[in-house]
Amino acid sequence: MKVTAALFVALVVALFVDVPLAQAAGCATSSEVYQDPPSWAQKLVDPSRIWLLTKGTGQTVAIVGAGVDGSNPQFGHDQVLSSDDLVARPGGVADCDGRGTFAAGIIGAQPNDQTTFVGLAPGAHLLPVRYTAGSGDTNPGDPGRLATAITQAVHAGAGTILVDIPTTVDSPALDGAVAAALAAGSVIVSPAAGTQQGIVSYPTALPGVLGVGAADRNGVAVQTEAGDYIDVAAPGADLVSTSAGGFGHSWPIKDPSAAAAYVAATVALLRSHQPTATPAQIVNRLTLTASRASGGGRDPRLGWGLVDAYTAVTSQLPLTASGPGTSPTTAAAPALVPAAAPAQPPINSLVGGLALGGVALAALAGLITVTIRRGRERGWKVSP
């Protein structure tokens, strides 16, 4: 095969920065369909267990970033809502960057016979809010424009706001937009996306925001960014999800920002199951139920551990918190009471009861027999 200079450069870039080849060469696109067994991340989350209780129905998750390609067939009819863009679409493409569609798939992709990949909360609506053109935009991101995007998501009724592409610059406008969103009852999920020392992501580091770290299949942090504002972690390497530009998938993707999509989906599931929970209570529940590493302490890059969607939704845990973003100490964390196991079918209960009854009767008969024999040996007489 003849390899041009441009293609060679694209191959090298894709190899070393862990992005799809199509994204390195231009806009992200893929026609490949993932047909391998479910990925490690999907096995870890195991959404089918949670769907017995909730699929996120009635929830709207805003994806604030570079847009979402809602034409991918794994999104349901009218599942991806329309919204106003704050920046022009490059070339008129719905999601040139590709990350928004990838995140949207992790959250809400519908089951499809052609692939084993499926989203965690397929009952949720997805609201793309574009505030940046993506990887080609000037870095750092514009915090003022991000603030406007968050406000727009709140006004559109998003109960969960995923900041898919955070900025590295804070501003009073961003602080105010985050505070107002929390007061309005929205949960803001934002990744610690920094892969260089000293990088701080915003609004990830702001009070009340659910800060998310990323881990690989071995539990090792993917991102370099660290801080006490990271609450929980989620899969961020060797990932599979929907691709922009048609019915396709991208894999294996390594992206710290993608971890936040798993957490946003979990928030949608939890909010659907616990509709009266406040943002602070949601954060508290997710941190208390996270799968902690050995030692049980807080890790500066992974927070309180990997998010456990099933336990977060099903555990009988009081939804309490002393303030926005309250995180527990291991000593103060209440004991978790897992959900009750499904009741056995009546026939099994009946058989079990008969078996136990038979054992009891046999033991009683044996005891009577032994007692009578010993009594006769000792000359006991039974009174008439």
Score class of each variant (00 low, 15 high):
Ala6Cys: 08
Phe8Trp: 13
Leu15Lys: 15
Val17Cys: 08
Val19Phe: 03
Pro20Met: 10
Pro20Ile: 08
Ala22Leu: 00
Ala22Pro: 08
Ala25Ile: 12
Ala25Lys: 12
Ala28Asp: 15
Tyr34Asp: 09
Pro38Glu: 11
Ser39Asp: 15
Val45Gln: 12
Ser48Glu: 15
Arg49His: 11
Trp51Leu: 09
Gly58Phe: 08
Gly58Pro: 12
Gln59Gly: 00
Thr60Cys: 07
Val61Leu: 12
Ala62Leu: 11
Ala62Thr: 00
Ile63Asn: 04
Gly65Thr: 00
Val68Leu: 10
Phe75Pro: 02
Gly76Phe: 01
Leu81Ile: 04
Ser83Asp: 10
Val87Thr: 14
Ala88Gln: 10
Cys96His: 04
Asp97Tyr: 12
Gly98Val: 02
Gly98Leu: 03
Arg99Ile: 15
Gly100Ala: 08
Phe102Cys: 00
Phe102Leu: 01
Gly108Ile: 06
Pro111Glu: 14
Pro111Met: 13
Asn112Ile: 01
Thr115Tyr: 11
Phe117Tyr: 10
Gly123Glu: 03
His125Arg: 15
His125Met: 12
Pro128Gln: 09
Asn139Ala: 15
Gly141Ala: 05
Arg145Thr: 04
Ala147Tyr: 04
Ala149Tyr: 01
Ala149Val: 09
Ile150Glu: 06
Thr151Lys: 00
Thr151Pro: 00
Ala156Val: 05
Ala158Phe: 03
Leu162Arg: 06
Val163Glu: 05
Thr167Cys: 07
Ala173Arg: 05
Leu174Trp: 03
Gly176Lys: 09
Val178Asp: 03
Ala179Glu: 01
Ala183Trp: 03
Val187Thr: 15
Val187Cys: 03
Pro191Thr: 10
Ala192Phe: 01
Gly194Trp: 07
Thr204Phe: 01
Leu206Trp: 04
Gly208Ala: 03
Gly208Asp: 00
Leu210Cys: 04
Asp216Leu: 01
Asp216Asn: 06
Asp216Lys: 05
Asn218Val: 07
Val222Ala: 03
Gln223Ser: 06
Thr224Ser: 09
Ala226Leu: 13
Ala234Gly: 05
Ser243Val: 01
Phe247Tyr: 11
Gly248Cys: 09
His249Glu: 01
Trp251Arg: 02
Ile253Phe: 00
Ile253Thr: 08
Lys254Arg: 14
Lys254Ile: 13
Ala259His: 02
Ala260Leu: 04
Ala260Phe: 06
Ala260Glu: 07
Ala261Thr: 00
Thr266Ile: 07
Val267Leu: 08
Val267Lys: 05
Arg271Met: 11
Thr278Arg: 12
Gln281Arg: 11
Thr289Asn: 04
Ala290Arg: 10
Ala290Asn: 08
Ala293Ser: 12
Gly296Ile: 04
Arg298Leu: 04
Pro300Trp: 07
Trp304Glu: 07
Trp304Val: 05
Leu306Thr: 12
Thr311Asn: 10
Thr314Ile: 10
Thr314Val: 11
Pro318Trp: 14
Pro318Glu: 07
Leu319Asn: 12
Leu319Asp: 15
Ala321Cys: 09
Pro328Asn: 06
Pro328Tyr: 07
Pro328Phe: 13
Thr329His: 10
Ala332Thr: 12
Ala332Asp: 02
Val337Ala: 13
Pro338Tyr: 07
Ala340Asn: 13
Pro342Met: 08
Pro345Asn: 11
Pro346Asn: 05
Pro346Ser: 11
Ile347Arg: 13
Ile347Ser: 11
Leu350Gln: 13
Gly353Met: 11
Leu356Thr: 09
Val359Phe: 10
Ala360Leu: 14
Leu364Phe: 10
Ala365Met: 14
Gly366Arg: 11
Val370His: 11
Ile372Pro: 12
Gly375Arg: 15
Gly379Thr: 00
Trp380Gly: 10
